[in-house]
Computed example of a mutant assay.
Amino acid sequence: MSAAPLPLLYQDDALVVVDKPAGIAVHRSNLVGADDDYVIDRLRAQVEGPLYLAHRLDRATSGVLLVARSREIAADLGRQLMERRVHKHYLAVVRGWPEESGSIDHPLSGASLKGPAKEARTHWQRLATTEIAIAMGRYEQQRYALLQVEPETGRYQQIRRHFAHASHHLVGDTTHGRGDHNRLFRIHWSMHRLLLHAWRLGFAHPLTLQPLWIEAPLDASWQRIVAAFGWQAALDAVSVASTPGT
């Protein structure tokens, strides 16, 4: 049976923007197993012409994925990313209640998790919180927060590693997270994915130079958590009109 087509958020003669599902690797690499299902292969089966990945998302992360239709467009988008002119807004659910806003400035090594660490900065805004009357460990109540996260740099698994470093581990992170909290979400909310979503991406269109913002809707798992914790109003209050470059 052939894989389902990918949801497309935007396309024109220069770009294709994909709503990447969680749990699917973007492309073949030494960092993933011998899968036979990749985002780029699915996309090539449904969109004609050459395609070049402009950036990457982890297998476990969902959301906006930018693909160029030519090497020249890919190079232009690469320059925007290198010059930090691309705004990447993620949604994340973390354990605990971080401050209302803040930054993590902590160098990170590469994908091998070895070698020299390079500068890495992540900024966040706390959108909502919840406190759940479930005892676990030393605590009678469990606290979680919904964050909007903007990585300034693009290191390997940067958001996941930064919030683990800050002891606000992402829920559903089986590599850097907390197994007890992951199990709690699986048992009570049937949550079997990492709660990290590439929500909005803002950049200059390579041909028109006009600012373009693309948003990926939340999948059913995310919607279940948002509804359970009463977070929809907080999400609605974060308007695209308030984001930079619009």
Rank of each mutant, 00 (worst) to 15 (best):
P5C: 08
L8C: 06
Y10K: 06
V17I: 14
K20F: 06
K20S: 03
P21C: 12
A25S: 14
V26G: 03
H27E: 13
R28Q: 15
A34S: 11
D35Y: 10
Y38V: 02
D41K: 07
R42Y: 02
R42Q: 08
Y52H: 15
R59K: 15
A60Q: 12
S62W: 01
S62V: 05
E72L: 05
L81C: 01
L81D: 00
M82L: 06
R85W: 01
V93D: 01
P98R: 05
E99G: 11
E100K: 09
E100T: 11
E100Y: 01
S103R: 13
H106I: 05
S109P: 00
L113G: 06
K118A: 13
E119F: 01
T129P: 00
T130N: 02
A133H: 13
A133M: 08
M136V: 06
M136A: 11
A145C: 12
G154T: 13
G154R: 14
Q158D: 11
Q158A: 14
I159H: 10
R160P: 00
A164G: 06
V171H: 03
G172Y: 04
D173F: 13
H176C: 10
R178P: 00
D180T: 14
H181F: 10
L184K: 00
L184P: 00
M191G: 03
A198V: 04
W199H: 14
F203M: 09
A204E: 10
H205M: 08
H205S: 10
L207I: 15
I214S: 09
P217K: 09
P217G: 11
V226K: 07
G230Y: 07
L235V: 09
L235Y: 02
L235A: 07
S239N: 04
S242V: 02
T243C: 09
T246R: 13
